[in-house]
Design a binder for these strands. Structure first.
Ligand code: MN
Ligand code: MN
Ligand code: ZN
Ligand code: ZN
Lengths: 168, 168
DNA sequence: AGCTAGTTGCGAATGAGACGCAACAACGAA
DNA sequence: TTCGTTGTTGCGTCTCATTCGCAACTAGCT
């Protein structure tokens, strides 16, 4: 039995199956709009925003609402089947440390802590990267839970984000 | 002449000097509100959002406007003296690839490309990290310019972001 | 076929940021 | 020190992504 390296379309099919299976397992109803959103998400190789997903879904199902797309995306996110880029979902956060350093991001409270590591600073990227363009800066983003959130038993999924804004 | 390891307050002073020097060099006026914002930024060890900075500045100068804080932050950002967290300044972007992988972020057009690297997947973080909490996931974010943006001579500073939304 | 709890679409609300503009005020020149 | 030029400020307004409330549906079980 030969096993070919999964190509894009094969991965897409797998992902779609994953979404529906997980939904069924979670007792979530498989509405036609959800199925279509699943198809679009399973097929994408990029990092779309909600509106891009909405547009793609509308091409096939013109009546889906913006809201349903958002709700489905966050639901999948809660199930750990889609991720979001960057540490903060809401407002822009600034960093006054412009030297080389890395980040520990707490998924519970949103706190971001710097850490330094000479090893990580000089990280070698795979050679194929040079064909993409020019890289100016490389940094590591480690996600997890800080001690406080661990003790508080806060969930990993960034749900109860009651804003740990600093500089109070 | 002894040279102690720069502590927080020393680094703060240095940073303040840097801000004012760079501003003067750029012909930017040193208004009292800017100076106060500089002080707050120079003193912070965290990753505040604009509102947190505004609150901190208001404690000393109750009349500063939200807008002035924004303008100053972006000005410093343009000068390369403050950074922002994460690849996207505006809307949330989703990632359907939940397996271990890393990102190439183009600062010109906003495109984010996946890349894989077994070496980077198993990255060892410095030991001190264990005292912060538990890390579930580690990924590398490499920022730069993609070939298209390099050829187009687009600036590194994410200015001309005329939205490269995919799934068109 | 009938129930019922989970969903949908919509119109309205929220909230971060950006903008336009008239009153102001740094700061180099005189 | 005074003045004039220009960059700045604060405010009211505007935009636009994301969220809410809710009444009208409907997937999925019986
Ligand atoms: Mn940082
Ligand atoms: Mn990705
Ligand atoms: Zn935390
Ligand atoms: Zn680009």
């Amino acid at each position: 039995m030969t096993r070919k390296k999964p190509d894009a379309s094969e991965a897409s099919t797998e992902r779609l199956a994953l979404y529906t299976a997980a939904s069924r397992a979670a007792g979530i109803r498989l509405t036609p709009q959800r199925l279509e959103i699943f198809r679009v998400l399973a097929a994408t190789e990029s990092h779309p925003d909600a509106e891009a997903v909405h547009r793609a879904v509308q091409r096939v199902m013109p009546t889906v609402s913006r809201d349903t797309v958002y709700r489905t995306l966050w639901r999948l996110h809660d199930m750990g089947l889609v991720a979001t880029l960057g540490p903060s979902r809401d407002r822009v956060r600034f960093d006054t440390n412009v030297g080389p350093h890395h980040h520990l991001v707490c998924l519970g409270c949103g706190l971001v802590q710097d850490f330094v590591s000479a090893t990580l600073d000089g990280l070698a990227l795979p050679p194929g990267v040079s064909q993409w363009g020019r890289v100016y800066d490389t940094q590591v983003e480690a996600r997890g839970l800080c001690l406080a959130c661990l003790k508080a038993g806060r969930a990993t999924r960034e749900t109860t984000q009651e804003k740990a804004s600093d500089e109070r």
